[in-house]
Write a protein that binds this DNA or RNA. Structure first.
Lengths: 337, 337
DNA sequence: TTGTAGGCGTTATCAC
DNA sequence: GTGATAACGCCTACAA
């Protein structure tokens, strides 16, 4: 591989001058500039990125931590993030934590070892106490996940309110026994959802029942399992808040093979407004989030922090959501007086 | 940030010895090893990755080029790749080409600038002539995409055969006018599919009709558009090979709002066996590919090339596929004698 | 067993 | 305008 030195020799000039040309700096005669460009072309010279990184202490790379890519929500998220980052000339490293505390910490280490300039956390399973020290090595921005801690920027929607609305909707459709389904670990986000859900119950004179709370459902097959669990152990359940379109879809799919009617026997609410929620029969009532907007804002906020360190005060960016009422909860008005 | 020098000073030893400890090398007294570990802890020392890269000429990073992450096939692919790469201690950079020749070349540049040790191409829109020179900078492995050129390893299935079988299946179901639908540009892969499709037609005494060939359908909304196009312009079409479960789903979804019955009025075949193909009503006949196996093999092949340069002869790894016949093509046997 | 010193490829500082 | 030279932080012959 040709180095800057080779170019300099071939052009009969110094490394310094070559460097100036590479970086479009002034104070080089047009003639020499040409001569150097010519030499670079001849040698197929390309600046070595490792050397640049070492010199500049910058990597032009960011890490995006998320639970898993097969969840289409995160697929959409990182798609938009990569595109935005690429516009700014930044590379994106994918870091799937699979909700493992250890993997999350391992990937955060990329910041310390200077493999990345900054980190976006769309996964969050460790305590803030464990994460905070990494701020010394570079900026971190939360996306989707969030907490009360105000020391870093966060981009997300109001999951508590969203869950509240979804639960109210189920109650208004006449559901008496609503199961609460979430996936995985007690992140701040799912805590918020549960709070909103509980609050809705309370406002309607009901209370949250632990026995009707499931915390392991993340995909279609979990949704299928869930249906059978409900059918056998909780047949009185007539509404489900799933927190995931995939789980809702699995549930609905499996219900079709039994004698349960959706939404009349069981009303189902998903989350994220994935394609699948529209395509299912019946279509799935869900919460729409502005994924793309959030993804792009997150990248922008992070890059702004990189470009102007310490300039912006950490800030929360709360995006609006929308309850999309579809057939999985639209019950026939049986009780019209 | 503490450097190796700082650690050495604090421990009262030389950089060399510290380096030995960092890299678990022999010839260090246990006592000094302890002393150094202690110093590293005190200073919160972490080796600087840029410096290591420059020194070792390795990045422990690979780039994965693919069209877009919102296509769940590529989501699954990169999910498995990242996991496997992570096992080997490699980082993964996502590179979405959006089928742009320019972006594809831009991302290949990562190899030349030594930002990555190797590249996986699951996107391929440029000519081989343009890509080949990059081999000088590091190994490239194709995944899913392939071509006859034997100079690099390729991991894929037999798309020609798969399309052949799908088309035969449609013909056996009594389809007379089958539309051929593909997404995007003429990659080698889609060329192969079209060949298989055409061959099946020929074997059944039919021929490929350009007028019934669509090359712009990649997602659900394209599938929806497609349905209306067929309904208005090609009402005689009674079978569709889509090459994508998403397109198939969009088609089926839209057909439900019209008076067309699937599969009797229109039989539909998808591709990839995405979750959605199972969940649709009717469920979608599709081609199953061993995505995870292919993804993992690709990463392994690439990493083997990195670990033992020039050791393995480039090789094709062809994975088996399977036609999953489901309700979108299972016509009632009207013509039982 | 430990240390010295040179260099990986680039860029910034300072002379000329 | 141009060019020596010194870092950036690490690893590794080669000496001791």
């Amino acid at each position: 591989m040709a180095t800057i030195e080779d170019v300099a020799k071939l052009a009969g000039l110094s490394r310094t001058t070559v460097s100036r040309v590479i970086n479009d700096q002034p104070y080089v005669t047009e003639e020499k500039r040409q001569r150097i460009s010519q030499a670079m072309k001849e040698l197929g010279y390309v600046p070595n990125s490792s050397a640049r990184r070492l010199r500049s202490q910058k990597t032009e790379t960011i890490a995006v931590l998320l639970p898993r890519l097969t969840n289409p929500f995160f697929g959409n998220l990182i798609e938009a993030m990569e595109e935005k980052a690429s516009e700014w000339g930044y590379q994106v490293i994918v870091c799937q934590t699979h909700d493992s505390k250890k993997k999350e910490m391992d990937y955060l280490q990329l910041l310390k070892t200077k493999q990345v300039d900054g980190v976006i956390m769309a996964s969050l399973v460790n305590d803030w106490k464990k994460i905070e020290p990494y701020l010394g090595s570079g900026p971190i921005v939360f996306c989707n996940e969030y907490m009360d801690e105000p020391s870093i920027p966060m981009v997300h929607m109001d999951h508590k309110q969203a869950a509240y609305e979804a639960a109210c909707h189920l109650l208004e459709q006449g559901c008496q026994n609503i199961a609460y389904v979430s996936g995985g670990p007690e992140s701040h986000l799912s805590k918020m959802r549960k709070e909103g859900f509980t609050e809705a119950l309370n406002d309607h004179g009901k209370s949250f029942l632990d026995e009707m709370s499931i915390e392991w459902a993340i995909d279609v097959s979990d949704g299928q399992k869930l249906f059978h669990l409900i059918k056998s152990d909780f047949p009185y359940v007539d509404g489900v808040f799933t927190g995931s379109d995939e789980v809702a879809a699995g549930l609905i799919y499996e219900a079709a093979s039994s004698d349960w009617k959706i939404p009349d026997d069981l009303a189902v609410v998903g989350f994220d407004n994935q394609m699948i929620s529209l395509l299912m029969v019946p279509s799935v009532t869900t919460i729409e989030q502005p994924v793309k907007d959030m993804a792009e804002k997150t990248v922008e906020v992070l890059i702004q922090q990189l470009l102007h360190p310490g300039a912006l005060a950490p800030k929360k960016y709360v995006y609006p959501h929308q309850l999309l009422v579809r057939n999985s909860t639209k019950r026939k008005k049986v009780t019209i007086q």
